[in-house]
Amino acid sequence: MGYLFRRSLLLCLLLGLLLPGATLQADPNTLESLIEAGGKYVGVESCLQCHESQHTQIIQESHGQAADVRTPFAMNGCESCHGPGEKHVINYAAADGKDPATIESGLVAFSGVKASPVEAQNSMCLQCHQGGSLIPWHDSLHDTAQVSCSGCHTMHKPSKVMDRSTEAEVCYSCHKKTRSQSYQMSSHAMREGKLVCSDCHASHGSNGPFMLKQTSLNENCYECHAEKRGPFLWEHYPVTEDCSLCHRTHGSNHPYLLTKQGPQLCQQCHAKIRPDGSGHVRIFLDYGDLSDPKRQRMVVGRNCSNCHKAHGSNHPSGVNQLR
């Protein structure tokens, strides 16, 4: 623990040095700077003169519900999210409508070639969305990868990522390997849309590994596989500690999403031999001809699982996970 204590102390010292200087320098790309540059609020009616179709769309969505005091439309309308529009209107008029100069006008744009920096976009959303599932957003994998909120969500029309049947399309646009894995011989019901990314992952950050919704990988798996949770009389320790030691999560060339084919999967950790000389390792050498399935009762079928249960046993004689 002394080792850990020293590391903790070092960490605290490091942060103590950094914190005082935290607000010394201003970033022109921050939300505050952009809003300040935008001037005054001009109101929804001004926006409608050019952006009627966007308005028509958003009032059908959650953010456009003025009756909900939490929404942008209960506050400053379009400018709640895009920032004050005074300078934008002035610049637009000055350019005779040819160059709206969105960013230069201090507006926050969430899409298009003139989209604002990701940090500014997300800061705008985080003004209201920092609670609940968003609490761990900062320094989450998506945050550090500079994923913008609008990269996944659309505000003016139904968001694909909010619909179970189209959610994966959005995730796969970046997670291409996962899409390929969904086609493998063994996978969860991802292709069929019966298991979607958000069933397991918290895309806004989490307190667990791999942006999983629960605090540990196993707890996440137990959400659907509660029968594996135990506690069992005879635990299989790797199972208790980490399901992913034996299973992949998105796709595998082996049944039940196993990482390897049995019995080699089990032989990564087991070479047990009994005092009488019998033992499982002999399945390779004692039986000679591997091409003869007659000799391979520990190799064919479900291999080790022909006799053993891998996930723990609650049988008083289940020491060897045999029942």
Partner: peptide, 13 residues
């Protein structure tokens, strides 16, 4: 978890 941006170009966690 503590996240900090002590200067515009630096983020620490």
């Amino acid at each position: 978890k503590l996240t900090s941006r002590p200067m515009p170009k630096l983020r620490l966690s």
